[in-house]
Design a protein around this nucleic acid. Structure first.
Lengths: 202, 202, 202, 202
DNA sequence: AATGAATGAGACTTCATTCAT
DNA sequence: AATGAATGAAGTCTCATTCAT
């Protein structure tokens, strides 16, 4: 009767620790020793659950993106609901998760840097992002179809939306004084108004 | 009489090489050997012109940001010109430099990742960014003063502008299909219209 | 009443597996994990039956050499039989075991490499080999005594015999085309003839 | 004006050190640190001259085998000389190099163990050995042609010769008391006699 | 008796930096 | 000014062994 451990819990614990360490020191500067110490395990245990540092990084990436994708997929599926309402849900959830995003923001930009460079993670990150973009486009298309949204091109609108939120997020890193929470809410409100508004500014 | 080498030219050559290498491989993955080879020098020579890798990185950072700051400072100084015109100049210059930005985009995100993380470069990057933000705010303030711009808060408007352009830039990395040049122009046009427009959407 | 496992059978199973793995990968490159997998046990179980990897190796070594020694001891004891006949028996048994030797040939040379190097296994291997040599010498001495063999010095003859067979065996590793079985038989025949022949070429 | 060093001398110094260390501890047990210390260099310097441990091992292997091959090639080329005389030269040279062979004997068996096992060095070692075998065969063939040697099959004779000398060499490892020098000379004499003798015992 | 998990010393290799010329 | 060589700390990963159940 061997020692029983919850493999999933173990992997999550390591990923949690690694995210903190990676965010603090940067993916490359962080050593596996640091991760091990943060996870209160030996280095060897890390390698019991993850083949390599890169493997660990990929798992973290997946775990970061998948909940958002899941939410979007769910929202896109709810065709009976109004598109605007669903966009509001989305915006609210994003707002709620902002506090914990702060922790991983550094890590996120690390990932974006990786996305800009040919390498094993580039495709992965871009694939996640593209999927998110496609789902958002579909949601907007549904809104147009239902006559709720006064926009012409759901693809360009989706892109513009992503750009604005990503931009705000990035700015909050570069200009530390920015009150991300407040600006995010303001942007959400305005954008939702414009999407359904008559001026068709998207 | 020994030939005096042009120290500035030498430093620039090294920085050019380093930027290419850093953009290609990432700051951390790139070795000083790679930089030396790209610059067609010995590794030792690098250390004649730069104290360390970090020093080289800082110099590159400075050289990347300073022309933009110089331009902005110049524009802010030209109080006799219309603010909208000066913003147009700014937008056009940015558009012109887009092609070469592509090359160093990866490097830029590397810097942003560094900006998100406590460390010696964080302050430096944020300082540059803050300075740019302040100058843009001042330019907008001049526009308000001159009655050209129909916006309330030049600070928030500056932030929104930066966010939108940074956002678009980032999106173009994450969604490879995006035609950055075209989108950038479209965004510039729209934003300038909104800045001076009656709806006060900023 | 708990089922008692057969310790000896278990140890043999592990040794069999280890021999295959060691032969395939080399003693050093082979990991205890590999042995465990080959033996269809957990790694922990290995350590229930063997104190350490070295211990396992020693046990394998013993099990490889002892049957040959047993046979030789038995033959030496059969003083009533003709020496030539007994040598023939020996040669035939060796020939019969050639096919399975192929499997462990790599391992054998690993052992010989160890025998050439100061270390815990050196003495062990040399002791086995010396014992074998002594028994062969004794057998030859009996043959001389009985007037069957026309050789002067049983020690040198024993050494020469061993050298020739070991040499052939080694050559068959280094020159893959060699038909070991055929050459071995030819050598046996010739050597037996020369041992009892008139020319005293040993 | 950079520091000038003799790269060849440097490589040789490292190889000398590595041979001593490998022979003493075994290829796998020996660490690159050990080699570095023995060569009185830093570990980094080792990697300046050799890409990897395996690379170093290959270079050593080449340096061990090539002089013997060179000698054989030279002898085979000297068609005007009697084959027996040339074989005598060969035997004498081998005898002369015996003392230093002692040092690398352990290493040699390490190599033979590698030759018995699938891997990057197997082909290399076998190729050297095969070349040596072919050259010896050719030399014997010349001897037959010139009517000096009374043997039928130069290939089998070459194989038998190699087997006998390799066997003796191996035995001297396994039975430490053997006087290798004396036995080697005795074997050489006898073999040369038999090669040219009338009994055609090869 | 046996297992799956965990440990941690240590292996090879890399690379920013320094040195001798 | 510049070079090729050298250094050595540190990084990732491995693996014999031990542990808790």
């Amino acid at each position: 009767m061997p020692r029983r451990v919850d493999k999933v819990e173990r992997r999550n614990r390591i990923m949690d620790a690694a995210m903190r360490v990676f965010a603090r020191l940067g993916v490359h500067q962080a050593r596996m020793d640091d991760v091990a110490r943060e996870a209160r395990m030996s280095k060897g245990a890390l390698y019991w659950y993850f083949r390599s540092k890169e493997d660990l990084l990929k798992a973290i990436l997946a775990r970061m993106f998948e909940p958002d994708l899941k939410l979007m997929e769910e929202l896109v599926r709810q065709r009976e609901r109004s598109a605007v309402e669903r966009l509001e849900t989305m915006a609210r959830k994003a707002l709620d998760s902002l506090p914990q995003m702060r922790v991983t923001q550094a890590l996120l930009y690390e990932f974006y840097a990786l996305a800009a460079r040919t390498g094993p993670l580039q495709t992965l990150i871009r694939d996640y992002y593209r999927r998110y973009y496609e789902l958002l486009t579909e949601l907007l298309a549904q809104g147009i179809e239902q006559g709720e949204l006064r926009i012409q091109n759901p693809q360009r609108a989706a892109m513009a939306l992503l750009a604005q939120f990503e931009g705000l997020f990035l700015i909050s890193v570069l200009l530390p004084g920015v009150d991300l929470h407040q600006e995010w809410r303001a942007l959400s409100d305005e954008v939702l108004k414009r999407l359904s508004g008559e001026d068709g500014s998207f």
